[in-house]
Design a binder for these strands. Sequence first.
DNA 1: ACAAAAGTGTTCCTCTTACACCCATGA
DNA 2: TCATGGGTGTAAGAGGAACACTTTTGT
Lengths: 247, 247
Amino acid sequence: MPVQTNQSLSVDCAVFGFDGETLKVLLIERAAHRSLDRLKLPGSMILENETLPEAAYRVLEEATGLLKRDLYLKQMEIFSDPNRVSGEELEWINRKHGINTVRVVTVGFYALLKLDRRTTDYTTKKGAQWVPIDAIQRLAMDHKEILSSALGYLCREMQQSPVAFELLPKKFTIRALQRLFEAVLGIEIDNRNFRKKMLSSGFLLATGEKEERVAHKPAEYYTFDRNAYRRALKAKLKMGFIDNWRY
Amino acid sequence: MPVQTNQSLSVDCAVFGFDGETLKVLLIERAAHRSLDRLKLPGSMILENETLPEAAYRVLEEATGLLKRDLYLKQMEIFSDPNRVSGEELEWINRKHGINTVRVVTVGFYALLKLDRRTTDYTTKKGAQWVPIDAIQRLAMDHKEILSSALGYLCREMQQSPVAFELLPKKFTIRALQRLFEAVLGIEIDNRNFRKKMLSSGFLLATGEKEERVAHKPAEYYTFDRNAYRRALKAKLKMGFIDNWRY
DNA sequence: ACAAAAGTGTTCCTCTTACACCCATGA
DNA sequence: TCATGGGTGTAAGAGGAACACTTTTGT
């Protein structure tokens, strides 16, 4: 078999947002095509002279209007089945880009963002939609598989690093944080233990501000103390450096 | 910027082995080139009609003589800097393959194997070498970076799943297992606690066989009970399915 | 006054950590 | 008999899991 040279590389992004209740994913509607599924993940071919993360940020800016600094982006898996895009789907891509590729290998990314009014307005204007994770049926190409994979990554990462805060507004209640964990992990969490754990971490700062106009005891707003987290991480790494230079 | 179509995809593998003392990596020697570094990771361009893991297995079989069933392989990161291979290095690749690519994106894999006599014989015949991880200086292209990344992945994975056994012979002593953890993680481990933990996992089976011709109390050989591990994992997943359908 | 969600402590149990000596073998 | 590394138990502390009632607000 000869070396493959007439191939293309693409990025596809599973973009997650949280509205306080459910976890949602950003889906793009593509121009109707008889037998092809309409909804897909935001993605793009890689352009000359850009890295894969750069391509992903470009796609995300286009889809959400948000810049790098307002997005959390992570590379996950590569989908390299020679036939993952073929037949009508391959024609659709070649027509769309005016190229003639025989194979598209894609790199899956997942992205997290703070789902505020401005962002939802922007995405709906673009013809994209935020779909609850549980309501997604079929997607174009192998995008359903990419999405499942992304969800797995998110679950794992949320239990090991403070990515949850990327999905919440700057100020949030501990209950909102808890609901986010429950929505992503699909479990119920004891709120006493949850608060204890979160507050004892030392990474949450009470703002003194409280909810207003709610028909119950108003919850306090907290912020994530990223600096405290960084310091703690650094201390941990420094310790690790003593007895484990490889980290 | 136009869509990039004249690019190539490659795989590069960090192959780890353990000789009972130190963690080693398989390095290939390439034909001398004035200013280029001689040692590199085993790797290859991706061929038409093969997936990335298939390409990686092909590379590994060529380098070690081992088939898929005797290897543990895992995809890690993608290295997509447009200039990661350029100048002389790019010329070297184009000359070697008789192609004319302007860009090579590579996918890093890491592989684990049981380092026995047959394998070391095979690799040395091939002009490859097993180099202790601490003794590696410079490597071709960005292979040093790929290796560092692989080592990080290995450290993390070894603490979360039983990949350690991929690096040990079928029958091994608990001390050997401990030394492996110490070598990879670069830490010292209390052997009483280590034995307790390992034996209480229920995944180690005593064989009844002992070391022979050693100048001290002979250690017992154990095997990894992969079925017990699978059962435990399945049980855990089933539990998880009740309160967390997403795993 | 009532409905609705926020916030708060204690107990039990499990898991982790620290630590020092005897044992079986070959030389 | 000695040198070498294998193998063993216990106690104290930290962290996780289970569990029910009071508080504050809007209506």
